[in-house]
Nucleic acid binder design. Structure first.
Lengths: 214, 214
DNA sequence: ATATAAAACAAACACTTGTTTGAAACATTT
DNA sequence: AAATGTTTCAAACAAGTGTTTGTTTTATAT
């Protein structure tokens, strides 16, 4: 009755292997043999390997961006048309990713990898899912930082994106540099540190800026 | 006389193709046919594909880290044993990468990709080249920020690393979000913005910290 | 010029890749 | 129970992978 369908089991295993070995480095036979089905199952259920990749991505990315938008709008509604704090904007942007990471660490590896992939095969599919939400947050940040030139704001958003993605994918590497014990997985505390760091970076005085109101 | 050896031409082309298509996605035949030599040339000169990859990396990474160390030590020598500014530390860490990027944008793509690659095949080779210099900068930062707990410092260094790498590899993506004209390549100005952003982030007050001396 | 070493070559090797095919097993509906 | 549609399977396909082999060309040294 409550069995998981083959289609969904393929998605789960593919997500895991994509994260562990990389997308290109994972063969369909790796996936299907781990699931325990025939190698043709992927082509049957998803049409092609690319179809499988798309399905793996969309399954997580859609709810993630919906949650981001939901949070941002709830904060903005609470401040009725007034500007909301940087911390709130950053929280709406970052917190859902950490929640998703806590529930499913593997997907974040995949997302981070696709974004930093110079082979832009997946870009035409991936970027449009980000465009809308990115512009939405850009608008929010422009209202919160009215004196910051657009170019500088975009650069700082790029820095934030990089810090966030890199934290997902490389947090565990820090263990070797720590003299004390190092928690194996990312927790709420890291979210706070990241938001804290980024908020300070966003508020950094812009060198060329004159007559700024603090 | 002044001809470029086959070995070096292979390195140049491999670097270009690795950056454009990815390492795993680039076949030896892609490289050798672009150079105009036989497909066995790579195995002859570098032993294997992995040998070629190692050679491509080391050629750029070694001078980069040497320059970073040189800058850091020159700053520290100028302050005779006193603490040096965050901006100086960050400059020693970031500026050489941008200089390398200006001279050779392609390598930075490769480096960024290897770091964010979940397939850790290249890690045992790549990370040791970073370990020493990373610890060196960690020490410098700990002296400049004596009140910051080690864990928080390491996290912030991770954020900085991510911002830097992501800027190398994804700067051009910002064009689509800019309403005005967007310079195609990264210039000195971006370095300054990055250092500015990271310095502010490093100096962010740590929530759990009490009795801090500014 | 001749011997010796280095470099480049064509051709094949064994292997893996994503995909397709046609038949078998299963489930559902009539 | 028979017919229909869905899912799974074994087997093969064509194309591409890194690597090895033995030979030929080129350069260097005696």
């Amino acid at each position: 009755m409550n069995e998981i369908s083959t289609k969904e089991r393929i998605l789960d295993v593919a997500e895991r292997l994509f994260a562990e070995k990389g997308i290109k480095e994972t063969s369909l036979r790796d996936i299907t043999s781990a699931v325990g089905v025939n190698c043709a199952a992927v082509n049957y259920h998803f049409g092609s390997k690319e179809g499988l990749i798309h399905a793996v991505i969309t399954r997580r990315l859609k709810p993630l961006n919906q949650e981001r938008l939901r949070l941002l709008e709830s904060y903005e509604a609470g401040a009725d048309n007034g500007p909301i704090s940087l911390e709130q904007i950053l929280h709406a942007w970052i917190a859902p990713t950490i929640e998703l990471y806590l529930r499913n660490p593997r997907f974040m590896y995949i997302a981070g990898r696709i974004i930093s992939d110079p082979n832009k095969e997946l870009y035409p599919f991936f970027v449009p899912q980000f465009e809308q939400i990115f512009l939405r947050f850009k608008d929010s940040l422009m209202r919160a930082l009215p004196n910051l030139p657009e170019r500088e704001l975009l650069l700082r958003m790029l820095f934030i994106l990089g810090a966030m993605i890199h934290t997902w994918t490389n947090y565990s590497d820090l263990e070797r540099f720590s003299s004390g014990p190092w928690p194996q997985t990312i927790g709420e505390e890291v979210t706070e540190s990241l938001i804290n760091f980024c908020a300070a970076g966003l508020q950094a005085p812009f060198p060329m800026q004159i007559g700024e109101t603090p």
